[in-house]
């Protein structure tokens, strides 16, 4: 790399480059984010086997289902004010109980399972369908590109909320309908990003070189283009997952997310806001967890985007 020195000089125009220190700092944040996501995944995977949350509390629907249990929490369960449960940050249940006496940590973990399931499935659908559309449109161009662009523009211009309300109202409130509704929003967005990235890669001369060698189009797409679009796709998958977690919360507020007794983060927050004054932790705990999760997803996605940027990997 003989031109290192000259390249360094050029950076003077683009602002100071990352020095050793700022890189290290950045890595720390990256690994913290990864750590948070790992903890979250472990909790969600453990599910009912989670040793931090006793089985009895996670299923307790103290008022409606098992009234006998209410006495168990007599220190704080007061049917007169229709509020049951412990306050937050007392021994025994770090994040307190909600109005039905359920342990907030437990339901947050439970809700996380469905939220994460929705987010991951939607992201997977978005990446596969949207990614395929974007790749084909960006590489083959021509009429395929025109068709895909029309699809993208039409779906993106239909008001998102109306579309979702329509689907959920017509087809009913189930996990799969929520996934369908959100996927319809994620696919065109991801298709557009992948298409832009594909256009950039397809323009590079190694793709031309493969054509000159007589490599078939499909082979070029998978061997030359896809590996270079992949990093962008993966990092956007992280960002998309975060966006969908938030979007699900929005749907829950509108009463369009999954039906009871299923819970998601959005539903916990939405259900808990009525008692926000008396028991803010019911809303705050899942909100904070949602916040850190989305932040972590964004940071990891961002970091990967920078790290594997094709332009950055040149000389």
């Amino acid at each position: 790399m003989s031109n290192v020195a000259d390249n360094l000089a050029y950076t003077s125009k683009a602002g100071p480059p990352d020095t050793v220190d700022s890189k290290r700092e950045w890595n720390l944040i990256f690994w913290l984010s990864v750590g948070w996501l790992v903890i979250l995944v472990v909790f969600i995977l453990l599910g009912s086997a989670n040793p931090l949350v006793p089985e009895i509390e996670r299923n307790a629907d103290l008022i409606n289902a098992q009234p006998a249990l209410t006495n168990f929490w007599k220190d704080s369960c007061d049917p007169e004010v229709e509020r049951c449960g412990r306050d937050a940050f007392v021994v025994g249940g770090l994040f307190g109980n909600d109005d039905r006496g359920r342990d907030v940590l437990a339901i947050t973990v439970d809700g996380g399972r469905i939220s994460a399931f929705i987010a991951l499935v939607v992201t997977a659908i978005g990446i596969f369908v949207g990614g395929a559309l974007g790749l084909l449109a960006g590489y083959l161009k021509g009429w395929i590109d025109v068709v895909v662009q029309i699809i993208i523009n039409v779906t993106l211009s239909v008001p998102a909320l109306l579309l979702v309300i329509f689907i959920v109202v017509v087809r009913g409130r189930s996990i799969w309908n929520v996934i369908l509704a959100v996927s319809l929003l994620a696919i065109p967005a991801l298709a557009r990003i992948v298409r832009a990235s594909t256009l950039q890669v397809a323009d590079r001369e190694f793709v031309k070189a493969a054509e000159v060698l007589g490599v078939k189009k499909g082979s070029i797409l998978f061997r030359e283009v896809l590996p270079n679009v992949m990093p962008t796709m993966i990092s956007f998958a992280f960002l998309t997952t975060g966006i969908i977690l938030v979007a699900e919360g929005g749907l829950a507020f509108l009463g369009l997310s999954v039906e009871s007794p299923s819970i998601t983060w959005g539903r916990i927050i939405s259900d808990g806001r009525a008692d926000f004054r008396d028991s803010p932790w019911v809303v705050l705990t899942p909100s904070m967890i949602l916040f850190f999760t989305v932040l972590s997803l964004n940071l990891v996605g961002d970091h990967l985007l920078k790290r594997y940027d094709v332009r950055g990997s040149g000389l």
Binding site: L8, A9, P16, P17
Partner: peptide, 11 residues
């Protein structure tokens, strides 16, 4: 670039 004071931040 150094002569015209355009040295990059880590220079």
């Amino acid at each position: 670039r150094t002569l015209i004071n355009l040295l990059a931040g880590n220079g």
